[in-house]
Design a protein around this nucleic acid. Structure first.
Lengths: 127, 127
DNA sequence: CTAAACTTTGACATCAATGTCAATGTCAAG
DNA sequence: CTTGACATTGACATTGATGTCAAAGTTTAG
């Protein structure tokens, strides 16, 4: 599919898809005419890239994380101790973020319940 | 305590503490000399404000969330249906973020294990 | 008292993410 | 072939979070 369709299906502005590509978060083939060509899997890839950036990761870090995710699929991934230490640091940062967001998420859900608007809450997550 | 101490104890630049105050995320008393005066509880408040902002919430939204958290402590909080609907929307956005971050967190942890750097992983969260 | 360290406010700079526009090329429909 | 919708690149503007600096008052150590 072309960039316009991917944009519609993901809700991500085409401008951002190109930007993410420029930052190495998202790859794309090129058709003979120079148009970017995406496949089904790119819908999720783009969505994840966007999700990480919206979760406060810099595009630089998001790229590292996405690369790691891909590597996880490989049989025996390897990495330098240095990279491992960097990842370990980021891992605790991710845990901090998760703890913080979870707390707020629960507070918002509780608030909606307390204010008799619990019917608006239906997603996942603890009550 | 004064802003310098709060800054050191939270690791948040004084500049940001003032900024968060300006944006309504953090309140402060004023001593006779005009200096901001914080108490113990502000250490956590400031930390949470920063955490939310680093988790990708705008200061505008972070303020709303923090306000909601405080209201949760009240006996019978009330709110307009309109606000409730906005919060419900943000709630799903928070859940999306959580899902996205959790996925990456787990991928990074798994990667560290696979690369025989599992010893660097020690925080919370699923393996 | 004095100098160093801290605080206040306010202005200005920076950086990353994002929006917007322009000039140009491609493609599909009529 | 022509028109309209879509793509490409590149430039420029905006916005929010931060850094940095300056001028001026305050506090504290010596």
């Amino acid at each position: 599919m072309k960039i316009g369709e991917l944009s519609q299906r993901t809700g991500i502005p085409a401008r951002m898809l190109r930007y993410y590509e420029e930052q190495g978060l998202l790859a794309s083939e090129r058709s003979a005419n120079g148009y970017r060509a995406y496949d089904e899997a790119d819908v999720e890839r783009a969505t994840r890239a966007r999700g990480l950036v919206q979760a406060g990761l810099s595009t630089r870090l998001a790229k590292v994380v996405l690369d790691v995710e891909r590597q996880c699929a490989l049989a025996q991934p390897t990495c330098s101790r240095e990279l491992a230490e960097m990842l370990a640091t980021e891992l605790t940062a991710l845990d901090d973020r998760l703890a913080c967001l979870t707390k707020s998420r629960d507070a918002v859900a509780r608030y909606l319940s307390l204010t008799r608007n619990g019917d608006l809450v239906r997603g996942p997550g603890a009550a």
